[in-house]
């Protein structure tokens, strides 16, 4: 069974402790999100899970067959056009060039890019388009596990919804597992099976919230209702410092 298991994870930068005793397991087909205020060590945790940083203490065991990463910023190669950017991951995975280009074109169309955009360089794309390309680059690999680092935070609501719909579609077909960090509670509620609340200084998990309703059955009413509920929670108020002073 594919899974990501984090055990007793601790991490420090110099003398500053960033993460303390983090434990969780992400099973195949699950969406797990980590919410918490900015600067709380979320990105560090995600980088440790994705093997972009070396684990200092504790363990991260990733048995998913494949994974890919979508960053908060698009991080496209400025000297490559849209299609070449999308195909990078495929080429790195050993695809033949022609196949990689073909797959990339298919997914680009699915992500709302148009044929006339294919030859454009990133400098000629809007922020939203760049993020579409970045998503396409991550998902064209059909990863078993997807790491998302607040990828929706800079997008307008329309595009946010569009990309989330694509993800929800994949989730309901059990095609993908997602580890997702965000500071947006509504986003987390819409997408996750489980939400971990990460409190800062040093980052540690204070609470878990679980949602059993399948993602494609969650409507706006559900999201608003759950958000309202979660915002009453003492730990949430404390972690996000929501209390009126």
């Amino acid at each position: 069974m594919e899974r990501l298991e984090v055990k007793n994870l601790n991490h420090s930068f110099g003398f500053t402790k960033i993460l303390q005793n983090i434990n969780f397991t992400l099973q195949k087909g699950e969406v797990l999100s980590i919410v918490g205020p900015s600067g709380g060590g979320k990105t560090t945790l995600l980088h440790l899970c994705a093997d972009l940083m070396d684990v200092q203490e504790g363990s991260v065991t990733n048995s998913f067959v494949s994974s890919s990463f979508a960053f908060q910023e698009a991080r496209l190669l400025p000297w490559k056009n849209v299609i070449d950017n999308i195909s990078m991951g495929l080429l790195a995975a050993g695809y033949r060039r022609r196949d990689a280009i073909e797959e990339s074109k298919k997914i680009a169309l699915r992500f709302g890019l148009e044929e006339r955009d294919f030859e454009k360089f990133p400098k000629d794309l809007s922020g939203g388009m760049k993020q579409r390309v970045s998503f396409a680059r991550a998902l064209v690999l059909k990863p078993s596990l997807l790491f998302l680092d607040e990828p929706f935070s800079a997008l307008d609501i329309g595009l946010k919804k569009e990309l989330q719909t694509i993800l929800i579609d994949m989730i309901s077909k059990k095609e993908i597992s997602i580890l997702f960090i965000t500071h947006d509670l509504m986003e987390a509620i819409r997408l996750s099976d489980e939400i971990l609340l990460l409190k800062a200084d040093p980052g540690h998990i204070v609470k878990k919230f679980s949602y059993t309703l399948p993602q494609h059955e969650r409507d706006d009413a559900f999201v608003y209702e759950q958000s309202a509920k979660i915002l009453q929670d003492e730990e949430i108020i404390d972690t996000f410092e929501l209390r009126m002073k």
Binding site: L52, S68, F69, R75, W79, M88
Partner: peptide, 28 residues
Amino acid sequence: GELKEMAKSFKFPWHMKFFDVYFPHIFS
């Protein structure tokens, strides 16, 4: 550094790291 990290996350082999990530920037 962000692009280097991206290359790492997609497990670029060394020749792609060099020709697709480092070289165009250095050449410019």
